[in-house]
Nucleic acid binder design. Structure first.
Lengths: 187, 187
DNA sequence: GTCTATACGTTGATAGAC
DNA sequence: GTCTATCAACGTATAGAC
């Protein structure tokens, strides 16, 4: 792995553990096995590093969802696949997801252009639009539904990650959780 | 208002805006209209200030819920009152709630004793236990239900606060959101 | 590209007068 | 209790050699 990736990898872990400002660049450089100056060769400022970290993992999540979700099936099946694959990615990338959440609650988030956010949300938004058109889900503002689904996923993840479930129980819980979601939004 | 409260009030605002570490004690003191040394007279360290801020508002929320929720009515009615009053408190105390969320995601949270957390969650946990006993809600692990309800509330708040709704629409949305929650957990 | 050395501002916290 | 003055430590970022 080259030095740039190593810096990003270490930064993700340390920042998620301690927060943006409590994580000095010196510590990141040290644990990544590079000199302090090297970090600033790859990232002009510390803020640049944080923004790069965000877009990197956000892109990975979006690509994963796009790759695993097809829109050819029925609405409820598409929803199901979307839900499961999102949970799976988050579970495999817990630190990255924690970082994304931290980032969303920080002032940095205001620096992200609206178009970029829209792009990341587009899959779910279009799916909801389709569901509304077909009368499969409750007639409510699409942003409300979107917000409820996002927080539902976060709640499920919070539950899953604070326990140490067997793989079987993990899948069972994920399925039950999806049922809850579907009971909530279906007409 | 005495100086201690003024410090807490300003700290809440500044820390919520910029985060724990990005908010210097000097700035808090300045905006609170006190000298730097005065802040450290009331709070031994900066961490002490942050912990005091957390327990203060967390206590206020708990007292508010205890005060407005009665357990004498039917389960669904008690749930409804709990939900509405929680949303109302959060809406009236958005900054405090944002701070609490920030705090929960920070390493500080590990410093909070488990008993204190249990105490704050006790109302909802007991309510869920009662609902399970009566067969009113789905037979699922109580922690899963608890987690789903918490995140549901956060999702609703996120939606409500990013829009500028009239008081009427605000209440309508809150009611609809509760219906969604109830559809999700009821048997 | 990578390193060492260092400049420079900022911050949390203390001491001591009033 | 409140203030002023001050310090030691730390953190970001740069300069320049290799």
């Amino acid at each position: 792995m080259d030095k740039k990736d190593e810096i990003l990898k270490v930064a993700l872990r340390l920042i998620t553990e301690s927060g943006f400002h409590a994580t000095p660049t010196s510590k990141i450089a040290k644990e990544a096995g590079v000199a302090n100056g090297t970090l600033f060769h790859y990232f002009k400022t510390k803020d640049d590093l944080i923004l790069a970290l965000y877009t990197k993992h956000q892109n990975e999540l979006r690509l994963f969802i796009d790759k695993h979700s097809t829109k050819n099936n029925s609405i409820d099946s598409t929803f199901h696949v979307f839900y499961i694959s999102t949970i799976n990615w988050i579970h495999e990338n817990q630190t990255a997801f924690q970082f994304i959440q931290q980032f969303h609650q920080s002032p940095f988030y205001q620096l992200i252009p609206r178009e970029y956010i829209n792009q990341n949300e587009s899959f779910l938004i279009e799916l909801l639009q389709q569901g509304l058109n077909q009368g499969a889900i409750k007639q409510l503002p699409i942003e409300l539904l979107h917000s409820m689904i996002n927080s539902h996923i976060i709640g499920t993840i919070n539950y899953l990650t604070t326990r140490n479930l067997s793989l079987e129980d993990f899948h069972k819980t994920t399925q039950k959780s999806f049922s809850l979601l579907w009971d909530m939004i279906r007409k």
